[in-house]
Computed example of a mutant assay.
Amino acid sequence: MGEELRPRRLGRGLAALIGETADVVPTTDRSHGQRRVPIEFLRPNPRNPRINFRESDLADLAASIREKGVIQPIVVRTIPGLADAYEIVAGERRWRAAQLAQLPDIPVVIHELNDREALELAIVENVQRADLDAIEEARGYSRLIEEFGYAQGDLAKVIGKSRPHVANTLRLLQLPPSTRQRVSDGEISAGHARALLSLKSPETVAARIVAEGLTVRDVERIAQQEAAGPSQAKPRAKRQDAKDADTRALEKSLSDVLGLSVSLHSLGGESGELRIRYASFEQLDGLCRKLAE
């Protein structure tokens, strides 16, 4: 049981199933090889993190499939107790589009995968292709953590993302349902959603994003103003005015390089403080990467 739940890096096993650049998924020791099967033999994966399939996207893919066929086989696994039935692990979008194109059969590669491996592969394949919206991605990560006991750091290694990315994505599930739906519908971006997390009323500002076309920076400024509070605005302005031109120029130079708000404060003599303000974990992650360069 302990071996089954031990998280590990996606190596040649699952990673090889995707084929990052190849048109055909390579075979592995746990593969039964590529074959064509009747399209009705395939079943959608109830664990697939992707639940949104836009009709316009499917129609475009179906048109391509009519002309060129399904270039990359769909990864499937057998369904215990059912003959001539396979569960889709990766490639449900292609399968749906192939049905629209009225293909009689479809290329597949059959693999022996347990539930954990199937979910991992479904998430990795969709993340690599940018097929998931941020909320679907977060739900997929959450499911791996809840069902298979992953720590965030181990999960990051498995899917090939940074730990802050996993943590920031999971935090999107804290948003109100209506705001999460706006992300899934494409009304607001994942960047907007992360900036909304620090607000007292994310739903109100989310509505403003749609109505007024607010940028991510606009939302971050709203969050900064809310965090500062009205009572702190005037004292901060006075301290800014007291700084000499050289200090303000240095602050601007550092801000331009880091892409964040930077302030310098003298502590007397030659000592002082350097303060860097960030509005989201995404910005903090970016700062850490720059400092590590």
Results as ranks from 00 to 15, higher is better:
G2M: 07
L10G: 03
A15R: 14
G19A: 05
E20D: 13
T21H: 12
A22W: 05
D23I: 09
T27Q: 10
R36F: 11
E40M: 07
L42W: 01
N48Q: 07
L58A: 11
L61H: 08
V75Y: 01
V75K: 00
R94I: 01
W95G: 12
R96G: 02
L100P: 11
A101G: 08
Q102R: 14
L103E: 01
D105F: 00
D105Y: 01
V108G: 03
A122E: 06
R129H: 09
L132S: 12
R139E: 15
Y141D: 04
S142R: 14
I145K: 07
I145F: 00
E146Q: 11
F148Q: 04
Q152P: 06
G153Y: 02
G153W: 02
K161L: 14
N168S: 15
R171L: 13
P177A: 09
G186N: 05
R194A: 12
T204Q: 12
V216A: 07
P235T: 06
R239W: 11
R239G: 14
E251R: 10
K252W: 05
S253G: 10
V257E: 14
L260Q: 14
S261A: 09
H265D: 12
H265N: 10
E273M: 13
L274F: 03
L274K: 08
L284Q: 07
G286T: 06
L287T: 06
R289Y: 08
